[in-house]
Write a protein that binds this DNA or RNA. Structure first.
Length: 275
DNA sequence: TACTAAATAT
DNA sequence: TATATTTAGT
């Protein structure tokens, strides 16, 4: 095939089309899209050259999520092109690492089921770049998982140790969804009659002695965070990069990056060394 | 406005 | 297929 059939459809081109094109405003009349669609701070953050920088108001520090900064190991999946740099306008897929999930669970535990709503959880977690949507989505999934576990536990005795049911569930969640032992025990005990749709979370004061230590160092690290009544995002305090947390916190009982699989998109926890 | 559940996308 | 994101309903 040496002759590529050039699809010349000139003849089929209707006249109205040409006239319609004529009626279009000239390029000069058009307002530059980059001006209206990309805010100055965004343009600055993403190093987008702005043609007309006649009105550059001092842009506030761009709330760039940690995982969007090129410093972190970020790789986008899917999208228009794999070659696309990490700084796409589309929010990259967040991977809930075991550590991040642990922080999530801890936040939920501290808040209690009553206050365990996306916004509050997000504030308590105080992870930079983590959105309420992220938390809401994860919370949904988490509840689903708890619900599932509840059902499994009611049908078969699977309290203290991990049984096949647990193992299967864990597999379902790619071993990402570990639930602290006190959670399981408490919930299962409470579940005798199946009175509650979801497993009941353990509020901090309800934690058994054995886990008060856990609660303790949580308080140590989160003491500065007004999570109890954080109504507004505090610029400094509310932004805590998980990577800055001590290893003792992160490596509590989870192995990092052991079950993320090969679809890691972005990680809030740089698995390597981080300074 | 925020939360939850369902649908959709990757 | 599993997970995260987005959307829609309350």
């Amino acid at each position: 095939m040496r002759e590529e059939e050039e699809e010349e459809e000139e003849e089929a081109e209707p006249t109205w089309f040409a006239r319609w094109e004529e009626e279009l405003p000239s390029p000069e009349e058009l307002m530059p899209l980059s001006q209206s669609l990309i805010t100055p701070d965004l343009a600055l953050a993403f190093d987008i050259p702005t043609q007309d920088h006649s009105s550059p108001p001092p842009p506030p520090p761009p709330p760039l999520p940690d995982f969007e900064s090129p410093d972190r190991s970020v790789s986008c999946v899917g999208g228009g092109g794999g070659d696309e740099p990490a700084r796409t306008l589309k929010r990259p897929r967040l991977v809930w690492t075991p550590q991040l999930h642990k922080r999530f669970v801890d936040a939920v535990a501290h808040l209690g089921i009553k206050n365990a709503v996306p916004k509050t959880i997000m504030q308590l977690m105080s992870v930079q770049g983590l959105t309420r949507e992220n938390v809401a989505s994860h919370l949904q999934k988490y509840r689903l998982y708890l619900k599932r576990m509840q059902g499994l536990s009611s049908s078969s005795a699977v309290l203290p140790m991990m049984s096949a049911a647990d193992a299967a569930t864990e597999q379902l969640f790619a071993s990402n969804y570990h639930i602290p032992r006190p959670f399981l025990g408490r919930a299962l005990n409470n579940n005798g009659q199946g009175q509650q749709p979801y497993m009941q979370f353990i509020a901090p004061p309800l934690l058994p002695q054995h886990h008060q230590q856990q609660q303790f160092y949580h308080q140590r690290h989160l003491a500065a965070i007004p999570y109890a009544k954080a109504s507004t995002q505090m610029p400094g305090l509310n932004r805590i990069t998980l990577a800055s947390l001590p290893k003792s916190y992160l490596d509590d009982d989870m192995d990092s990056g052991s079950g993320t699989g090969d679809r890691r998109v972005l990680t809030l926890f740089p698995t390597g060394t981080q300074d």
